[in-house]
């Protein structure tokens, strides 16, 4: 049995070996171990294949022009979310009031239609903006970054 086998082999040296982070003596120790142990050779080959797969993965990052504004702070995001919640609450309250008013009003049908149009028009426009905004949030990669 070889001399190096007298002490237990530290398997983490395989990682240092793959990464070129070992001293010459440690590297020699690993080489000797690999010559002697086919299971260790198979393990190192597997780890090397995984390592190469990871290292050849190139992730995309936003281009410079997609980071136009200075980073937005957490407080700013909180205020914006609160603003949207308030606006949605306002729209629901106005719509409910308008429907109740139209249903119970003693006015003629055309007067009720005028009121419904005055309230419903802006609400429909608001809903359209809201829906667009929700759609953009789902599909626009860097929406939060740009605004």
């Amino acid at each position: 049995m070889n001399e190096y086998r007298k002490t237990p082999f530290d398997e983490s040296l395989f990682s240092g070996y793959l990464d070129g982070e070992l001293t010459q003596a440690e590297e020699q120790k690993v080489r000797l171990h690999l010559e002697d142990d086919p299971e260790a050779r198979a393990l190192v080959a597997e780890l090397r294949a995984i390592r190469q797969a990871a290292r050849s993965t190139r992730l995309a990052a936003p281009a410079d022009e997609e980071w136009r504004e200075a980073p937005r702070s957490g407080a700013s995001r909180f205020l914006r979310r609160s603003g949207w919640l308030l606006a949605i609450g306002w729209a629901v309250a106005v719509l409910g009031f308008a429907l109740w008013g139209a249903a119970t009003s003693p006015e003629s049908w055309w007067e009720r239609a005028l009121v419904a149009g005055a309230v419903g028009g802006p609400l429909l426009l608001f809903s359209s903006v809201l829906l667009d905004r929700l759609k953009v949030m789902k599909t626009d990669r860097y929406g939060r970054v740009r605004r």
């Binding site: 992730l59 990669r141 860097y142 939060r144």
Partner: peptide, 21 residues
């Protein structure tokens, strides 16, 4: 920083937020 955040969080939206912060 963005790529590292993406590798930790796994999605672009969170990575952009983390990078900004």
């Amino acid at each position: 920083a963005y790529r590292f955040a993406l590798q930790l969080t796994g999605n672009r939206e969170d990575a952009a937020d983390v990078t900004q912060e």
